[in-house]
Simulated assay, not measured.
Amino acid sequence: MNTPLPPVPDDVRLVVSDMDGTLLDGAKQIPETLWPLLDELGRRGIVFSPASGRQAATLLHQLGHAVPGLVVIAENGSVVARDGEKLRVAPLDGDVATAVLARARELSASGVDLGVVLCGPDGSFVERSDEKFLEQVEPYYFANQIVDDLTAVEAELVKVAVFDFDGIEAVTAPAIMSVGGAKEVVVSGHHWLDVMAPGVDKAVAVRAIQDRLDITPAQTMVFGDYLNDLAMLGTADWSYAMANAHPDILAAARFVAPSNEENGVVRTVRSALGLPDIG
């Protein structure tokens, strides 16, 4: 453990953490030290909320059993859910989704190795069914369905996710961003890009939780590592970039926490609770 623990608040009531690259370790596993911490947060009446590009079903499957009434910020803020109840859903315009899918197919036809996930509030859809692609999809989309043709999907959508095996930023991101229509586009990882309704991001969802529970930014800790976390850093006086975060996140956050490989989220929250460092 090389990164020292950062300053922490005296009065914390809400802890919001991204998942991949932040809370999860390098193998994308939940650290075992999280479970007793969640128990302690519950005893103290402190709300824990995962905020992720993952779907609500995935987050509830991973964490819901440990936190009764867990509120999850899913699909990069497009869905806020508690147990089986959707507290907030921001639909994506169908014409935008169709145009993004068409552009992705053009890129694929030109040789770009990519796949598309259409995301609804309750589940997702893919048409690319090779094991190579599904291995990338399954950790994020627990409720996922393989279909013959994505253009035939008639479900309400909240997001279109695009995965580029060669990296999303050089070719695919500019091409998708140039698609017309009202939309929000975020790069959510080295290989992933998400298209959502305009004005949708994790920050809107965090503020909704704060307003609903009468929690202030001074009582909020937020942890993130990548560009889809940028907006929500502004919702908390106690914003933390992981030590291995994207440079823009490191520049925007007020503090730097140990990396996800150093169990930075758990250790920093334990420090705020006055608990000993587990190293």
Rank of each mutant, 00 (worst) to 15 (best):
L37A: 11
D18K: 11
I73A: 04
L92R: 01
T58R: 15
K202Y: 15
G84C: 10
I46Y: 03
L70G: 05
V158H: 01
I30M: 14
K132P: 01
W35Q: 04
I176W: 04
I215N: 01
L233N: 02
I176Y: 05
A66G: 02
G189A: 08
V185F: 08
E75K: 06
N228H: 10
A251L: 13
D211F: 08
S124H: 08
D11G: 01
E32Q: 15
A197M: 09
E261G: 12
A236F: 14
G21Q: 09
D211N: 08
E169G: 08
A245Q: 07
E262L: 14
L118G: 02
G42Q: 15
A175K: 04
Y240C: 04
Y240F: 15
L37S: 07
R82C: 10
A51K: 13
K183A: 06
T33M: 09
W35Y: 15
F142Q: 13
D194M: 12
T235G: 03
E106D: 00
V204K: 05
A218D: 08
V186E: 07
A236P: 04
F133N: 00
K183Y: 11
P276T: 04
A99Y: 09
H191N: 15
V72I: 09
Q136A: 06
S110P: 00
L37K: 04
L150F: 09
Y226N: 12
